[in-house]
Design a protein around this nucleic acid. Sequence first.
DNA 1: ATGGTCGGTGGCCGA
Length: 369
Amino acid sequence: MNESQTHYDSELLQFLSDRIRLSELRHKFKGNMALVASQLYDLWRSGQLHVHRDWGNTSQKNEKILYTNRTCLLPTDWLQIVKESEHQQSLLIATWNINSIRSRMPLLLSWLEEHRPDIICLQETKVEDHLFPHQELGLSGYQTVFSGQKTYNGVAILSRHPIEEVKYGFSNRYDSENKRLIAAKILGIWIINVYVPQGQSTDSPKFSYKIEFLKELFQELEQFYDSSVPLLLAGDYNIAPDSRDVSHPEAMENQVSFHPREHQFLDQIRKWKLEDVFRKFNQEKGHYSWWDFRTMGFEKDEGMRIDHIWVSPSLMGCCKSCVIDIENRGQPKPSDHAPVLSEFSYQYQPAGNSRFDINQNGVKHNGGD
DNA sequence: ATGGTCGGTGGCCGA
């Protein structure tokens, strides 16, 4: 048992070592349930308690219930302590096109305070590097790496964990004057943050630029990254993947942001083994991450899902949720995009802790047990 | 309905 558990009732922990119904536990702790309940919620919140729920007598399988500050335990829930061997940390990763970091600072800081993501990828920071508000973000507990320019574009990665390595832009220097790409290795995960060109309209040179950019982006992935390790491609793709992700699919046929040549890029990264985490949990239509200011899109529930988190198989396997925080779009002075937030239960194996590792002399050795 | 509203800039552009 680790130290954080020492204040828990030992009898309670004993009962929880095998799965047990809350109602049965309540029976065993008659009269002392208030204390037990607060300990159960503590354990649950800190990721040390499994909660599974049978939905009545239906054939629906036993569902794992994740802690939120609104979820309650039910008498019929199955409880069991998380064994040390399977203990995994929760990792929250977000992406958000903030449409100017300087004008969005109050909203950004309150959102970070509320959700405490471990890592967030920002696009359209619209600020030169020497004016980037890294000190204020530092006070909120975030290390930052950023690549910006005046007026347009600009990307940044904020992290509550050490940033191990950074890549600015494309390796082949493609489009280096536009700051649309930054990547950082954090907790052993390659976090690639991209702001794909919008494209304007299919007959515009800006659309050709978008298609070329996507081609270069896929080349960059293929040549310089490995999808067999933990890897995440987040950002404003400016592409709605399928008909569920736009308000009027018929009208969007062959239009920018919903064009076969753009979908080709998604097919490429899919084939390269990346997956859209949002669709792991939600198959419904009408979930958008962007709404046009001009047409009052948000007020009319007309938008597109163009902000994405796609991940390699090892991260997909431990992905627990993905939500679009549309509540944020209803705040005063919102961005035209809402943040996308995803949770992973990811156990980082820092160098030196893995069984087979390279030591400081670069010699491979067996760490043993 | 071919507009509308943002953000940043500098005497309009990009989304």
